[in-house]
Write a protein that binds this DNA or RNA. Structure first.
Length: 572
RNA sequence: GGGUCAAUAGCUCAGUUGGAUAGAGCACACGCCUUCUAAGCGUGGGGUCGGGAGUUCGAAUCUCUCUUGGCCCA
């Protein structure tokens, strides 16, 4: 793929005797098409050359014009004010892009990641607790990043760092011991376990002995007691079965399910390492690392006064394990911004573990905003949670209603409703920047109009419909790209050119919404094109060109949506 | 109190490392289906880019400060 920016920078560098590296960062893409495909603002050269920007622009243009035979890609250069505007030869550009998109599966994209190792820690729900809409963002954003890194040739490991450890299991075991036969946890594990959990908490408040038993259970669990371990494993596997229903709906996949419990025997080593650095100090009976000199005025607690470990210790053990096991270049943690301080502390303490700088530099907390209910924050104890399964099923039901209304003759309504409903939910979560909070409202999430998942799907379905009508796909070599020089086609061409670059931007910022916005732009551009241009026409050259453009747009829309975790129906 | 993130149209949000006249969707009004899916397309109204100061040829974007709100703090 030709890099037009590079070509322009290269030529200006020769003339202005400046470094190509600098110039390339100056070159920008004008918002308005009439200002060309690329633009070089000469203002910043004005000072050192001691000339007015328009004069500089004119001088560069003159010299560039002399070399025009060296740059067949450039059609013309215009000076507007202090700007030097470059117009790329449309024919050249169009051919280049169609070629690239045609071979999208085998393009050079895989070189970008260069086999670097990326570890993504996402979803990570708590065992025996409801899987609610608060877990959606981690699952969906993490999943999208997983797909995109992989697509760009990174070697990605997805980890579901389950919350399957902690004193609450001592309580659950006690509750199960006492009243296990009263609850049908096989049938409805999470709801029943939640009931037991609430009940045992009440009991603990009233009876100190029960609380003591709970503590003992957890201790026994840690020591590998057979009975406790068996019950714990039962809770874990029953919960996972429940979670799997949601993961199946969302299409989430993980390479590792090692949760907190997995690191339970790996924490003594962490404490030992930290101890030997001399930075692990006693404070109010707890073992802490002071981070004041690192600009973090809250110390990191490694071991509590009662001798139990903390989330921080477990995360440190995970870092050490992952560095050894996956040799990661980047390790991403997908959680809400509530945990910002926690990860700041952990990443700082990780520098004391004696691991290579590569690892500590690769740690990154990818934080996102919270999902709030119109009434405020969700809370499991308060009982005001919306379960993910419930949301997804509602989405499917609503999608089915729309299908009945718009296209009652459609085959596979169930399957399409699933893709559309889930697609709407996923896209809704990926369309705004991560950091934004989201107030949960059914009508907003399950809206199928405007900038939504179903809009992308609908546009894709239209491309398929056109291809079906055309009955054949012309060969790339037979396309007369001159037939694609209208404003609408060119708009699409330019967007297609940006596809790979968009994906790279996503990984640079760990921000899948950049891809979401891009796909909306592409779908809009195609919809305008579709409305303004008849595609199946008398003139076969025109038809071939437009059908082919339709084909590649469909291809990119589908590829892009799949990367976000959204499936495309062929009809809807 | 300390730290941190945010504030752009009535609502939800874009705005690529500072660049040309700040853009979408929803909502509202109007127009477009005897021809490729109207879950669509087009037109229109609507802005003190939270306030102020600064840096710069140029600031929604960078710096400082203030205001409001979210989140975190053994």
């Amino acid at each position: 793929m030709k890099n037009f920016k590079q070509i322009i920078a290269n030529k200006i560098a020769e003339i202005a005797e400046l470094s190509e590296q600098n110039l390339i960062t100056y070159i920008e893409i004008p918002k308005d098409i009439k200002n060309g495909d690329y633009s070089f603002p000469c203002f910043r050269l004005a000072k050192e050359l001691k000339k007015a920007p328009p004069i500089i622009a004119n001088e560069i243009k003159e010299k560039l014009d002399e070399k025009s035979n060296e740059m067949p890609e450039i059609e013309k250069i215009e000076v507007v004010g202090g700007y030097l505007n470059f117009f790329i030869n449309k024919d050249e550009l169009t051919k280049e892009i169609l070629q690239q998109v045609t071979n999208i599966e085998t393009s050079e994209k895989s070189k970008v990641g260069n086999g670097k190792n990326i570890v993504i820690d996402y979803s990570s729900p708590n065992i025996a607790k409801p899987f609610h809409i608060g877990h959606l963002r981690s699952t969906v954003i993490g999943g999208a990043l997983y797909n995109i890194y992989k697509y760009l040739g990174y070697n990605v490991t997805g980890i579901n760092h389950l919350g399957d450890y902690g004193t609450q299991f001592g309580k659950l075991i006690e509750g199960y011991k006492l009243w296990g036969n009263e609850y049908n946890i096989e049938k409805d594990p999470i709801n029943e376990l939640t009931k037991i959990y609430i009940r045992i908490n009440e009991a603990c408040k009233q009876d100190e002995q029960i609380l003591e038993n709970c503590r003992n259970n957890f201790k026994k669990l840690e020591e590998g007691d057979k009975y406790c371990t068996e019950i714990w494993e039962k809770f874990r596997s029953l919960s996972l079965k429940e979670f799997q229903k949601v993961y199946d709906l969302l299409g989430s996949k993980f390479d590792s399910w090692n949760g907190e419990a997995f690191y339970s025997d790996k924490m003594p080593e962490i404490i030992d390492i930290l101890d030997r650095t001399g930075k692990l100090i006693e404070s109010q009976g707890a073992k802490i690392i002071d981070l004041e000199d690192k600009g973090i005025n809250t110390p990191c607690i490694i071991e509590k006064s009662n001798g139990s470990t903390t989330y921080a210790t477990r995360d440190l053990a995970a870092i050490l394990y992952r560095a050894r096991t996956y040799d990661f270049d980047k390790a991403l943690y997908l959680t809400s911004y509530e945990q910002t301080l926690h990860f700041k502390q952990v990443f700082e303490v990780a520098k004391l573990l004696g691991i290579d700088e590569k690892y500590t530099k690769g740690l990154e907390h990818v934080s996102f905003g919270m999902i709030l209910l119109p009434t405020g924050k969700m809370s499991t104890r308060g009982g005001n949670v919306i379960k993910l399964e419930e949301l997804l099923n509602e989405a499917i039901t609503r999608a089915k209603d729309v299908i009945e209304q718009k296209n009652p003759e459609l085959e596979n309504k169930e399957e399409v409703a699933k893709k559309v409903g889930i697609g709407a939910v996923i896209f809704n979560d990926l369309s705004a920047s991560r950091i934004k909070d989201e107030v949960f409202e059914w009508d907003a999430i399950l809206n199928f109009q405007g900038e939504t998942g179903p809009y992308l799907q609908y546009t894709y379905v239209r491309t398929k419909s056109v291809l079906e009508k055309a009955e054949y796909l012309p060969k790339m070599e037979e396309i007369d790209t001159k037939k694609l020089q209208d404003e609408y086609s060119q708009n699409i061409i330019k967007l297609l050119y940006n596809f790979e670059n968009t994906l790279i931007q996503v990984t640079e910022k760990n921000e899948p919404s950049i891809l979401s916005r891009y796909l909306i732009e592409l779908a809009k551009a195609y919809s305008s094109f579709y409305n303004e241009n008849k595609i199946i026409v008398e003139d076969k050259d025109v038809q071939n060109a437009r059908v082919y453009l339709t084909y590649v747009v469909g291809k990119v829309l589908k590829e892009g949506a799949n990367l976000l975790g959204i499936e495309m129906p062929e009809k809807m």
